[in-house]
Computed example of a mutant assay.
Amino acid sequence: MYYEAISQCTQSLKLVEGWLNKTVAFAEAKNVDVDSILNGRLAPDMKPLIYQVQSACDYVKAGAAWLSGQRPPEHEDNEKTVEELRARIRKTVDFAQSVPQEQYQGAAGRKVSLSWAPGKVLGGKDYLLQMTIPNVYFHIAMVYAILRNSGVDVGKRDFLGAVNFVDA
C-alpha cells in the first residue's frame, strides 16, 4: 500500500510539470507575464503557486523518505522560474522513484515526528493517510486552481492523467 500510494502521488506531481508547460505556452500566446501566474493566488492570505508546487514536492519526498526509513532530502525553497520549478519536481520524482518497494516494509510501524507538533508522532499509516496524501493533493489542486483562475487551459483530464483501463 505505501509504495503504491507514494507512486500515485508521484505520478500526480509529474502532471504538474505538464501544466507548467501549458502555462508557458499560454503566457506566450496571450502576452502575459508568466511570473504573474507563478506568483498568483486565489485569496490574499493564500500562498502563491510557487509555494504550492514546493509544498506538493515536500510532501511527496517526505512521505517517500519517512515511510521507507530515511530522512527526506533537503531542497531550498528558492525557485522563482518555471524551469526552477520543473527542476524541483524532477528532483522530487527522482528521489521518490529511487525508493524500492521493499524499503517500505515496516512502514506502518514507523513513527513520524512533525515539526509543528513537538513531542507528538504519527504512526506510518496515519502519516500516509492523514498527512501525505491529503497534503499532496491539496497543494496540487491549488496549483490547478490558480492556473485555471489565470486562464491556463488545464482541465480534469490534465488533473487525472492517464487512466489504466482493462478489458471488460
Score class of each variant (00 low, 15 high):
residue 1 M to F: 11
residue 5 A to Y: 08
residue 6 I to T: 05
residue 7 S to K: 13
residue 8 Q to D: 14
residue 8 Q to I: 08
residue 10 T to A: 04
residue 11 Q to P: 00
residue 12 S to C: 09
residue 13 L to K: 00
residue 13 L to D: 00
residue 13 L to Q: 02
residue 14 K to Y: 01
residue 15 L to S: 10
residue 16 V to T: 11
residue 16 V to S: 02
residue 17 E to D: 13
residue 19 W to M: 10
residue 20 L to E: 00
residue 22 K to Y: 03
residue 23 T to W: 00
residue 24 V to T: 15
residue 25 A to C: 02
residue 26 F to D: 08
residue 28 E to N: 14
residue 30 K to P: 05
residue 31 N to M: 10
residue 31 N to K: 15
residue 32 V to T: 13
residue 33 D to L: 07
residue 33 D to N: 15
residue 35 D to G: 05
residue 35 D to H: 14
residue 37 I to A: 03
residue 37 I to S: 06
residue 37 I to L: 13
residue 39 N to F: 00
residue 40 G to N: 08
residue 41 R to C: 08
residue 41 R to Q: 14
residue 43 A to G: 04
residue 43 A to Y: 14
residue 43 A to R: 13
residue 43 A to D: 12
residue 45 D to V: 12
residue 48 P to F: 07
residue 49 L to G: 07
residue 50 I to D: 02
residue 50 I to C: 06
residue 52 Q to G: 00
residue 52 Q to L: 01
residue 54 Q to M: 07
residue 55 S to I: 03
residue 55 S to C: 10
residue 55 S to N: 10
residue 57 C to A: 10
residue 59 Y to C: 02
residue 59 Y to N: 02
residue 62 A to Y: 00
residue 64 A to E: 10
residue 65 A to F: 06
residue 65 A to G: 09
residue 67 L to G: 05
residue 67 L to D: 07
residue 68 S to R: 06
residue 69 G to R: 07
residue 69 G to F: 08
residue 70 Q to A: 11
residue 70 Q to E: 15
residue 72 P to A: 15
residue 73 P to G: 07
residue 73 P to K: 08
residue 74 E to M: 13
residue 75 H to K: 04
residue 76 E to A: 13
residue 76 E to W: 00
residue 77 D to A: 12
residue 78 N to S: 12
residue 79 E to Q: 13
residue 80 K to T: 14
residue 81 T to F: 09
residue 82 V to R: 03
residue 84 E to H: 04
residue 87 A to H: 06
residue 89 I to G: 05
residue 89 I to Y: 06
residue 90 R to Y: 03
residue 90 R to I: 00
residue 91 K to Q: 12
residue 91 K to T: 04
residue 91 K to R: 13
residue 92 T to D: 00
residue 92 T to Q: 02
residue 93 V to H: 02
residue 94 D to I: 01
residue 94 D to C: 01
residue 98 S to Q: 10
residue 98 S to H: 07
residue 98 S to Y: 07
residue 98 S to F: 01
residue 100 P to Y: 00
residue 102 E to F: 06
residue 102 E to G: 11
residue 103 Q to T: 11
residue 104 Y to L: 04
residue 105 Q to G: 06
residue 107 A to R: 03
residue 107 A to E: 06
residue 107 A to K: 02
residue 107 A to S: 14
residue 109 G to H: 07
residue 109 G to I: 03
residue 110 R to K: 12
residue 111 K to H: 05
residue 112 V to P: 04
residue 113 S to R: 11
residue 113 S to K: 14
residue 115 S to L: 11
residue 117 A to I: 11
residue 117 A to L: 15
residue 120 K to Q: 15
residue 121 V to H: 11
residue 121 V to Q: 15
residue 122 L to I: 09
residue 123 G to Y: 02
residue 125 K to S: 12
residue 126 D to H: 05
residue 126 D to E: 15
residue 129 L to N: 14
residue 129 L to W: 06
residue 133 I to L: 14
residue 136 V to E: 02
residue 137 Y to M: 10
residue 141 A to F: 09
residue 142 M to T: 13
residue 143 V to K: 00
residue 143 V to W: 01
residue 145 A to W: 08
residue 145 A to P: 07
residue 150 S to F: 00
residue 151 G to Q: 08
residue 152 V to W: 09
residue 152 V to K: 10
residue 152 V to E: 11
residue 155 G to W: 01
residue 155 G to Y: 08
residue 156 K to V: 09
residue 156 K to Y: 03
residue 157 R to M: 10
residue 157 R to N: 12
residue 158 D to H: 07
residue 161 G to D: 00
residue 163 V to D: 08
residue 164 N to F: 12
residue 165 F to G: 11
residue 165 F to N: 10
residue 166 V to D: 10
residue 167 D to Y: 10
residue 167 D to L: 11
residue 168 A to D: 14
